[in-house]
């Protein structure tokens, strides 16, 4: 069943169409990949879904509720959470405080009966940041900074989690652990929309993949099918020899 549905999004920046009638569907409890070359419109798609950018036309629905036109915070309250391609950490706070801020805000509007402090500690353990929990986030390497952003997003108990290049800055071991964490999250019922350049991660964890190019959805389907699509090979992965290099 589709949780998040994006229909015919059009976004124009100074006459240039960043998204051109792009549509996608993220099914419940699945990890949906969104790939494409730089400038394809992936981050713009995330910005439109979460409300940072207003589209010229198109609709966004979450569990059948139309979110188009709603402000950012209302979309978050409807169940969307995200991380950012360029880290948006709270630089004057520690790792623990970064996650705690999100947990506090979520507790305030959701009125759920959960102690934000306990939620924070549980998330620190889940994303593997216990060793650096009291460090100021500016001293973390980028890979761990992305885990802090993931932790903050998880503190909001999202229905749909949008992750924008979460593995960039991580080494192979960290990426592997991160992939396992994503699979766990999906198994727990969280729907994930994943923008990622690490093809091995995408091919390993995603149930389905959408390919964006020049703001249009080029193709979509199961990872193996997308990987073999000649259009994708031509437009995104390059020559067949190059596709061998990036195959999982």
């Amino acid at each position: 069943m589709a949780v998040l549905e994006v229909r015919d999004l059009v976004v124009t920046f100074g006459g240039q169409r960043a998204l051109n009638e792009a549509s996608l569907v993220a099914p419940d409890g699945e990890i949906t990949g969104l790939i494409g070359p730089n400038g394809a419109g992936k981050t713009t798609m995330f910005n439109v879904i979460t409300g940072l950018v207003t589209p010229s036309s198109g609709t966004i629905t979450l569990d059948g509720t139309d979110l188009t036109g709603r402000p950012l915070y209302k979309r978050a309250r409807a169940g969307l959470a995200r991380t950012f391609q360029q880290l948006e950490l709270f630089t004057m706070l520690t790792v623990r405080e970064n996650i705690r801020v999100a947990a506090d805000i979520h507790r305030r509007w959701s009125r759920i009966d959960a102690d934000p402090a306990q939620t924070t500690e549980a998330i620190i353990d889940r994303v593997g940041l216990r060793a650096v929990a009291d460090e100021r986030v500016t001293v973390l390497p980028t890979g761990q900074g992305r885990l802090v952003e993931l932790g903050r997003a998880l503190a909001c108990r999202p229905r749909v989690l949008l992750l924008d290049e979460p593995a960039s800055g991580q080494d192979d071991t960290e990426t592997q652990r991160f992939g396992e964490l994503l699979i766990d999250l999906a198994a727990d019922g969280t729907t994930v929309l994943l923008v990622e350049h690490d093809m091995s991660l995408v091919m390993k964890v995603c149930h389905s993949v959408y390919v964006l190019d020049l703001g249009r959805v080029l193709t979509s389907g199961p990872p193996a099918q997308v990987q073999a699509d000649p259009l994708v090979l031509q437009a995104y992965l390059g020559t067949s020899s190059r596709s061998d290099a990036v195959a999982p």
């Binding site: 915070y73 978050a76 709270f90 630089t91 979520h106 903050r152 503190a155 909001c156």
Partner: peptide, 24 residues
Amino acid sequence: SRFGRQLVAMRDSEAACATFGLDL
């Protein structure tokens, strides 16, 4: 306090705070 952490967080990234559901 919780409010103080929230203010400091807003100072760094209002967008991130809004994605947690905060009406700024």
